[in-house]
């Protein structure tokens, strides 16, 4: 029982990260109908910008943890937002009316480019971050002496993720920008006729997705304490799986899917085999694509005539 609770906590923490990344996939899919495979690498860049910011803050002697974290988050969001914007502007905009395969291939190219660009600038070695938040609350102890621990880090991660997701959901549901995005998603041409600047809306979508991925990158860095240029690939594909599981195109779906994938991965690693935990996740992808192609919360895709 204690072991189960501990795994659930770990799983939800990891799931929060996947959920944040998955939103980026699902939003871009919703609005322009393509899978942005460079999104995982945007997430990786978020992690790198965080660690660089941390180093720079260290040089200036700013070590108060909350301030440092806020600075890291803001810088990471700003820089990845810029990257997200650039990726769309350079890689996808010209291909918007091209056959679906073209932007997909362009996305894979962008992904490889971003990985190599970070590898060149930052080197191929792992970048470690000293643990800056440690400790936690001991929730319960079993008779065998197994202690369930909820780390302060995990609390911060869950609270941050919840705040970001709630803010984001409100933005989509309540603000004119969100309404504009939903309009573009349903009928881009009509939205344009009503005076919506579609190009700008799409750019903003990429920037917002990238900012969320940056938050995920920061969390990942804090949680694992290590980052390298390749980390975005696997995390990105898992987050994509989360988006598909939740129903691609659906925001609540991405959040739920992310949490589920995190929990599944951690439980599989905890109870069966940690070496094959990735297999578990990709089995889910296969099963969902075969048996539940619209995902848990997705809407059936009706071909427009």
């Amino acid at each position: 029982m204690e072991y189960f609770v501990q795994q659930l906590i770990n799983g939800l923490t990891l799931g929060a990260v996947y959920g944040l990344i998955a939103i980026g996939y699902t939003m871009v899919y919703g609005i322009i109908g393509m899978i942005n495979f460079a999104h995982g690498d945007i997430f990786m860049i978020g992690g790198f910008v965080s660690i660089i910011t941390f180093m720079v803050l260290g040089v200036f002697g700013i070590t108060w943890v909350p301030l440092a974290l806020v600075c890291m988050l803001v810088m990471a969001m700003a820089f990845t937002g810029l990257h997200g914007w650039a990726v769309e502007r350079i890689g996808y905009r010209a291909l918007r009316n091209a056959p679906r395969l073209a932007p997909l291939i362009s996305a894979i190219g962008m992904s490889i480019f971003l990985q190599n660009y970070v590898q060149l600038l930052q080197g191929a070695r792992n970048k470690p971050l000293p643990p800056i938040i440690s400790g936690g609350i001991e929730l319960m102890t079993s008779s065998e002496g197994f202690t369930v621990k909820l780390g302060y880090m995990q609390i911060i991660i869950m609270v941050t993720t919840t705040v970001i997701m709630v803010g984001f959901t409100l933005m989509i549901a309540r603000t004119p920008l969100g309404r504009q995005q939903r309009a573009c998603e349903q009928d881009m041409k009509m939205a344009r006729l009503l005076g919506v600047n579609v190009d700008r809306t799409i750019s903003l979508t990429f920037i917002m997705g990238a900012a969320l991925a940056a938050a995920a990158g920061l969390i990942w860095l804090l949680y694992y304490g290590i980052i390298d240029f390749y980390v975005g690939f696997l995390a990105g594909i898992k987050a994509f799986t989360a988006a598909v599981l939740g129903g691609i195109g659906s925001l609540p779906g991405a959040m739920v899917g992310g949490l589920l994938i995190g929990v599944i991965e951690v439980f599989y690693a905890g109870y069966f085999s940690s070496a094959y935990k990735d297999v578990a996740v990709f089995m889910i992808l296969v099963l969902v694509l075969i048996f539940l192609p619209t995902g848990l919360i997705g809407r059936p895709d009706i071909e427009k005539v």
């Binding site: 004119p176 920008l177 939903r182 349903q186």
Partner: peptide, 27 residues
């Protein structure tokens, strides 16, 4: 060509988004 999955009211609000965007300080 309405936005079929938005409410009737929201369809009319989308049409006014330019002034709303300005007033909302871009969100």
């Amino acid at each position: 060509r309405l936005f079929p999955r938005m409410s009737v009211l929201e369809n009319l609000m989308v049409a006014q988004h330019n002034k709303l965007m300005r007033a909302s300080g871009y969100t």
